[in-house]
């Protein structure tokens, strides 16, 4: 095992190499592959139909509700991890705290449920 301080150099190197592999692959494909664009080829694919307009437009915002709930529960997670690691030292006190925290968030989940915000149409 290497020095612990070097651990994050590994993380950095893996990220850089990951991005590098993508670039090299694209470059290889650019060198090897033919490139003969025509008007038809560059058109957006819609199962052979003529595409009408762009896809970017107004979208139903209820997709957003799920992202919102997710963000809230993700914030819960950043408290769950330290709590779980130090769980035995924190004892019943910490458990009660976390139970109250989760209960309050579950109230929000229940609200979304009753408001039918959890339905995907």
């Amino acid at each position: 095992m290497p020095d612990y301080n070097l651990s994050y150099v590994y993380v950095f190197a893996f990220f850089v190499v990951g991005a590098g592999i993508v670039s090299v692959m694209m470059l290889l494909s650019h060198l090897l592959a033919p490139f003969k664009p025509t008007r038809e080829k560059l058109r957006t694919y819609e199962s052979g139909e003529e595409p009408v307009g762009q896809a970017w437009g107004r979208y139903p915002t209820h997709f957003y509700v799920f992202a919102l709930l997710f963000v809230v529960f993700d914030v819960e997670v950043i408290f769950l991890f330290p709590w779980a690691v130090l769980f035995r030292e924190l004892g019943w006190y910490g458990l009660v705290e976390m139970a109250v925290f989760i209960a309050i968030l579950v109230v929000g989940l229940f609200y979304a449920w009753k408001k039918k915000a959890l339905n995907w149409y």
Binding site: S29, A33, F35, L42, R43, T44, Y45
Partner: peptide, 11 residues
């Protein structure tokens, strides 16, 4: 796959 044309649509 490496030899396939890399198409990037206009839009």
């Amino acid at each position: 796959l490496l030899g396939k044309e890399d198409i990037r649509a206009r839009l």
